[in-house]
Design a protein around this nucleic acid. Structure first.
Lengths: 166, 166
DNA sequence: GTCGAAAAGTACGATATCGAAATATTCGTC
DNA sequence: GACGAATATTTCGATATCGTACTTTTCGAC
């Protein structure tokens, strides 16, 4: 069965018959990857919306939570983990702090640095949401067989590793 | 070999042993999908940057080009294909028109509607770039075996179809 | 020990997106 | 054929991001 990406590739094949099959197959694959990320985001994020969180806010709380006691990281470490600019992290932390979900204080060891910590309210929030979040992700993937899920994960991991040092 | 996503899942397993293996596997898969989209974008887009185009601008020109003669679509059709809001498409078209790569004129058949067309300069631009673009995508995927690429495409297509009607 | 280089965080300006409202036109129903 | 609903596009306000510049603090080489 043809999908939207097949239609796009078919148009290119008709309009530019000089493009090779391997190249068009690569275009299809990247097209599906991009579209999947775009389609998946709201489906994954609906859990957060139910709890009054944006996806990006959950990401910050989750990074602090899984780092373990005392649930503390620097803005730079958070920005690196979430692949954000430091400026974007400042913005997210401003809002999370205003909402009472994280605290910011100076690092006594290094006065250039800040320490960002989950507040009790922030900890309660992320612990209450994460179970529902992963259950939702599991449910979304139930459209694939267990074998397909396993193969997909392996190949994505290979591709990610291969592109990382490009 | 463990990657960044394995590390994240390992942290969750240590901190929240109540989360199930299936759920954590789903989290890993979505994490890899999201990260891949994030990592791939600049690698794919470097071709456009070399030609003074943003990825989003190329996407518009490419949609017009592959639609075939007379390289004309409405803003609404473009917005739907690229999964953008109509407002975002207005913005992109404003810039492409100012750069002389597309024309906008009223549809004589339906005066609510606009017809967006590639200018000769826009056509030359997209035709000059698309070959290099797909060659780059093919090269990026060469880190996978042909069998892996084929399997990946099939599974992504299944997942996309499964999530579409969710 | 001092001084230039590097690092951490924030502020600022620019950009791209969205949702909602506004405007103009067409369609469908009675 | 009139009128309300639907459609196409744009405008506006809000938001999230980035890159760059700036301030403060620490590190390293001599």
């Amino acid at each position: 069965m043809d999908d939207a990406i097949d239609g796009i590739v078919g148009q290119w094949r008709a309009e530019r018959p000089d493009l090779g099959d391997e190249e068009l197959a690569a275009m299809a694959l990247f097209g599906r990857l991009g579209r999947l990320a775009q389609v998946a985001e709201p489906l994954v994020g609906r859990v957060f919306v139910r709890h009054g969180l944006a996806t990006g806010e959950f990401d910050v709380l989750a990074a602090l939570r899984r780092s373990g006691e005392p649930f503390t990281l620097t803005p730079t470490a958070l920005a690196r983990q979430l692949m954000l600019s430091p400026a974007a992290m400042t913005n997210r932390l401003d809002k999370l702090e205003a909402a009472g979900r994280v605290d910011r204080r100076l690092d006594p060891e290094n006065r250039r640095s800040m320490l960002v910590t989950l507040t009790p309210a922030g900890l309660e929030m992320v612990d209450g949401v994460v179970g529902e979040h992963v259950a939702n992700e599991r449910e979304l993937l139930s459209v694939l067989s267990a074998a397909d899920r396993a193969r997909l994960d392996v190949i994505l991991k290979r591709l990610l590793a291969g592109l990382a040092d490009t």
